[in-house]
């Protein structure tokens, strides 16, 4: 596995070993951080999916109620008001604005619904009859749309989170399976090269000291030889020394002279 990853193109020096070690440390920190980020996002993601599920169920109910109130309207008005409403729609009263929410560094937009005041396109709708039902229907639908907007923001968050989680997981895997093994490989390579250099150096030093020892031994032997030679020379002519010693005998010394008898 790690053999396939290769290593980085660096010179095997102590400096780059330090750099690589730092890099490995950084990669490990980044890996744990990203892993944690991914976990946090996934937790949020599961939460959102659960809420989407719930909101979808709720939407079904709410829309059913809304459709029923619309049926009430057409019953009360006694005719189709669809066309009239479609034609009189001019300005949106019900609008959304997007806000941002920060989840572990990911900006998730959330929609927030608000009603634009002073806009009412249907002021005259249901003037003749069914005005009350129409009013109620509008309220019901406004609530339904609020639910829908909530669901839409959940869904948007779902899509964005999905994408972000994929990216983060890709990065986690890249660090785990490519960057860390490769850096480790590089460190191993640099270490082996440095060991090799160390061994060479050691061998060289050994050689040098061996040579020095030999030189010293040779010098010692020479001195010894010289001394021996000197000693031998001394041994060969001991009389000369003796004679000299005799010659230099103090005649006036303590040695008593033999009495001379005539």
């Amino acid at each position: 596995m790690s053999g396939a990853v290769g290593r980085e193109a660096v010179f095997p020096t102590r400096q780059s070993l330090g750099l690589m070690k730092n890099k490995l440390k950084g990669a490990e920190i980044g890996h744990t951080l990203l892993k944690r980020k991914s976990e946090a996002l996934t937790k949020r993601f599961r939460d959102i999916t659960r809420r989407i599920d719930e909101a979808k169920q709720k939407m079904g109910r709410v829309m059913q109620i809304a459709a029923f109130s619309l049926a009430e309207v057409s019953y009360a008005v006694g005719g189709d008001i669809g066309y009239q409403i479609q034609e009189s729609a001019k300005q949106a009263r019900f609008r959304v604005r997007a806000k941002q929410e920060n989840v572990s560094g990911v900006l998730l937009p959330t929609f927030e619904s608000y009603t634009q005041d002073g806009v009412n396109d249907f002021g005259l709708t249901g003037l003749g009859k069914g005005g009350q039902q129409i009013q109620r229907c509008r309220e019901t639908y406004a609530r339904a749309v609020e639910t829908l907007v909530e669901l839409a923001s959940l869904q948007t968050a779902f899509l964005i989170l999905d994408e972000v989680i994929k990216v983060v997981n890709r990065r986690v895997n890249a660090i785990e399976h490519v960057i860390i093994p490769r850096t480790e490989n590089t460190i191993k390579y640099i270490n082996s090269e440095l060991d090799e250099l160390d061994r060479e150096e050691f061998y060289r030093l050994k050689k040098v000291s061996g040579k020095k020892q030999r030189d010293v031994a040779a010098a010692d032997a020479e001195i010894l030889a010289a001394r021996q030679k000197a000693a031998e020379e001394q041994a060969a002519h001991p009389e000369a020394v003796e004679k000299e010693e005799k010659e230099t005998k103090d005649v006036l010394g303590e040695d008593e002279d033999n009495d001379v008898i005539f």
Partner: peptide, 12 residues
Amino acid sequence: VTGLLLAGIGHV
């Protein structure tokens, strides 16, 4: 569409 327009989402 009619219901949603009644809620006021229609815009031209």
